[in-house]
């Protein structure tokens, strides 16, 4: 048995994990899969006589998780005084609200 580890940046949450595992465990020769959404890596134990890393990599890409390809996130504009939610919805509080202070508990002692 051999091991191979791939970086899979698009597997960033645990609802992606079952998809990745299913894609890999269905391949003959794959013995075990450890898919970590925390580290965005997948470690595969496989039989080199039956399957090779290229096949595994292709299976990942076909499932929507290409190796080493970062998730391209849209860049949202930096919130400023003009359009940030805390200004537009309720007005950002910059002083301690007396109601909060009155209700606050023991944490003020820290």
């Amino acid at each position: 048995m051999e091991h191979v580890e791939f970086s899979v940046p698009r597997m960033w949450a645990d609802h992606h994990v079952p998809i990745v595992r299913k894609a890999l465990l269905g391949i003959p020769g794959v013995e075990d899969v450890y898919a970590s959404s925390a580290w965005k890596t997948v470690r595969i134990t496989y039989d080199p006589a039956r399957v090779n890393p290229n096949t595994l990599e292709k299976a990942l890409a076909d499932a929507g998780y290409p190796v080493g390809v970062e998730l391209e996130l849209p860049t949202y504009p930096e919130q400023t005084k003009d359009n940030a939610m805390w200004y537009t919805v309720a007005g950002r509080m910059t002083e301690t609200n007396l109601a909060d202070l009155k209700m606050s508990g023991d944490h003020r002692k820290y």
Binding site: A13, D14, S36, S37, K40
Partner: peptide, 13 residues
């Protein structure tokens, strides 16, 4: 209420 996270913690968690 509280949250108890068992095992590794990913971005969504």
């Amino acid at each position: 209420a509280f949250v108890l996270a068992l095992g590794e913690v990913d971005d969504l968690k």
